[in-house]
Design a protein around this nucleic acid. Structure first.
Lengths: 113, 113
DNA sequence: TAAATACATGCAAATATTATTATGCTTTAA
DNA sequence: TTAAAGCATAATAATATTTGCATGTATTTA
């Protein structure tokens, strides 16, 4: 059983535009740092920083390949998460109709809004 | 088509222990601010701030019920997201076996790590 | 062996997030 | 109509995140 806390940390780590882009690219295959440097159009140290954050949180890993570091996806939640982010929903969850029970029990009056 | 950017904002908004707790409680039904004040054991202004953040990002909404504000879930992604956070995976994604293609094409040598 | 490539790290500055405190508004009950 | 309940907001302080820049290390090539 994975503690919810860890999963929330994972959410926090994922919730960044550049890191989402990194993860999407990694679902297509292995990439090295300078690959990202091109595709993300950010500085090399910044790429390394994002990769390090993802790696220290168990999201990705790498192997050394000559002088390249080849990064790959490790956390199995990621593909499901990326898919969920693209899911379309037809409608909002409908508002509860009437008289909800809260601290003050049910409220007898009309719903005002 | 919802822009990915908005979805990433959603992730960021969700990725906080207290707000996850709020959302989990709201999947069970409507709650007012003082309900949360008790269950979350944080100050009332802090509850309001978290609720406001969730509301301004379209995750929840409320209706006025006497002097209570009854909050409810609005964003249909949330239940799916909460379920995904609890999902268990047997194993990590396996590392790519050999010779990945990167910027420098395939590397002829052995995998080192 | 010297230079170049590929990448990481440390530090500081800028920015964003979070919690606390004080205060104000609206609604209901006395 | 006054007091209390329920909630929001503003301002501040504390903390965390993000980036840029300079520099360092390992590996490969010339």
């Amino acid at each position: 059983m994975i503690p919810l806390e860890k999963r929330i940390d994972l959410l926090r780590v994922i919730a960044h535009p550049i890191r989402i882009k990194i993860l999407e690219e990694l679902t297509l295959g292995v990439k090295c740092v300078s690959d990202f440097e091109e595709s993300l159009e950010i500085s090399q140290p910044n790429v390394s920083q994002h990769l390090t954050l993802l790696r220290t949180n168990g999201v990705i890993d790498f192997f050394v390949d000559g002088r390249l570091k080849c990064y790959f996806l490790k956390e199995p939640l990621i593909p499901d998460m990326l898919e969920l982010l693209k899911k379309e929903y037809a409608e909002d969850i409908p508002a509860p109709a009437c008289c909800p029970v809260t601290k003050k029990r049910t409220y007898p009056g009309e719903r005002r809004r």
